[in-house]
């Protein structure tokens, strides 16, 4: 009995850590690219997007996991999208109410969480096959992994495009801000470079 508990404890830890690095949704699985690129002009919108995704992922994983035994195979995807769209609408309303500035900045990228592949992929791969506990842990791991990736990208782009972070000047005076980093081109190139870096690090490790 004790052994079993320990095993499941390990399993939880493993599931959680997988989302952070080994199966990081952005760097490893290449999922959810659209918000990753669009909202990372600065750190703050990146973080806002991050916790919105964590919330939606958590709720949808819980709901899907609870009704996994009732799902009909051909209505499965429809059910997932319905669940996700509902929670995204709720997030959108909350953002409009409590963070109007961020809501205006993120604009249509908040509703676009609906088609963020991460959420539907986790619902399909994890929540529809596993119990409540694993689903929650998985959602947290994946969500935090996604937020981390977004923050790294957002921080790099904010520093290079304005020399500031959280609107506080950190770069010395001689630094010339590079506006291209805040443009679409900067997003693509930074993410490409980061992916290369992640490949390099994981190769060194093994």
């Amino acid at each position: 009995m004790a052994n079993e508990l320990e095993l499941s404890g390990n399993q939880y830890k493993d599931t959680f850590l997988a989302g952070l690095w080994r199966e990081n949704p952005v760097f490893r699985l290449l999922l959810g690219m659209c918000p990753t690129l669009a909202v990372t002009t600065a750190l703050k919108p990146a973080l806002t997007m991050g916790y919105s995704v964590i919330f939606v992922l958590l709720c949808s994983n819980i709901v899907v996991s609870l009704m996994r035994n009732l799902l009909k195979p051909h209505l499965r995807i429809l059910m997932f999208t319905l669940t996700i769209a509902t929670f995204v609408t709720i997030v959108d309303i909350f953002l409009k109410a409590f963070q109007p500035e961020m809501s205006a900045m993120l604009g249509p990228y908040v509703p676009l969480i609906i088609v963020n592949c991460i959420i539907i992929c986790r619902a399909e791969v994890c929540a529809s096959k596993n119990g409540l506990g694993v689903s929650i842990i998985d959602a947290l791991g994946m969500g935090i992994g996604f937020t981390l990736a977004l923050s790294v990208l957002g921080a790099i782009r904010e520093i290079f495009s304005t020399g500031k972070i959280f609107e506080i000047q950190i770069m010395p005076d001689w630094f010339v801000p590079c506006a291209a980093m805040a443009m679409p081109a900067g997003a693509f190139i930074t993410l490409g470079m980061l992916l290369g870096l992640v490949n390099l690090i994981s190769k060194r490790k093994s």
Partner: peptide, 10 residues
């Protein structure tokens, strides 16, 4: 029978 879950959830 096929869609009761969908309807209730909606």
């Amino acid at each position: 029978k096929q869609s009761w879950l969908l309807i209730i959830c909606s």
